[in-house]
Simulated scan of single mutants.
Amino acid sequence: MTARLDHLVVAARTLGEGRAWLEGRLNVPTQPGGEHERFGTHNVLLSLGPMAYLEVIAVNPQAPAPTRPRWFGLDTPEVRERLEDGPLLLHWVARVDGLEGLNLAPFGEALDLSRGENHWTLTVPETGSLPGGGVRPSLIVWHTPPPPTRLPDAGVRLLTLRLGTPDPDGLRDTLNALDLVGDVEVYEAPQPELQAMLETPEGPMTL
């Protein structure tokens, strides 16, 4: 099995705040996404080329409260406190062809999900927590063509995803077990942190 980066997750207190923050930094427009009824969230999207994309996600104030904790730690005091300082690159998702034979314990349970015409299976911890504090990827299997096949090309590309963690060897072992391809750099840091090095029409940019 080979895994590759599917998308980056930028979180914000509100979708409007997150969209304005990203568009202001990259000087490119995002595209409408939709609502995630199961988790009470909504998003907008940005192409990172033909194989990857970026989503800005936030709690949808118009949606009923979900029956389980929201994904990506959005219900946790830690993430809510971090978002008080503004939107941030919170997590990333790796695409795989299937989940059969994988030990899903480090990633969470596999949920079948949909948004509009999109259908996918995603690993989500039952607690809604961030896997590895955000640096261990969630795993996704697409059952319909993934968003990059339909998003307009904004001229933005991911150059490198940098993942800082107190346990770099453990994270490397996880990524090696997935046979991850792509420019992902793991380094030692006091706490989990993510940096995305992007090429944009305005030049290099870091999220």
Rank of each mutant, 00 (worst) to 15 (best):
V56R: 05
M1K: 05
P146T: 00
I140D: 06
A52M: 00
R68L: 09
L180S: 10
A189I: 08
A189R: 04
A63F: 07
P137T: 04
V9G: 00
A12K: 06
P147V: 04
T2S: 12
A110G: 07
L111T: 09
L171Q: 00
W92T: 06
R13A: 09
T41L: 00
H91I: 03
N27M: 12
H36D: 01
G24F: 05
L48I: 12
R115E: 08
D167T: 14
L26D: 04
I57L: 15
W92L: 00
G33S: 12
G155M: 05
R115S: 11
P152G: 01
L122E: 01
V28F: 06
S138T: 09
E109H: 11
R172I: 03
E81G: 13
E55Y: 05
G108E: 07
R115W: 02
R150W: 06
A189P: 01
L88Y: 10
M197K: 13
E100R: 14
D169M: 10
A63M: 11
N176E: 15
P87Y: 03
G128N: 00
G86W: 04
L102D: 08
D167R: 15
A11T: 14
V141R: 13
V141C: 11
E193F: 04
L198R: 06
V79A: 02
L45M: 14
R13C: 00
V10A: 09
V10S: 09
F107K: 04
P50Q: 07
S138A: 13
P166M: 08
A94T: 02
E185F: 10
L74Y: 05
E35P: 06
R95S: 15
L90A: 15
D153T: 10
L8D: 01
D6I: 01
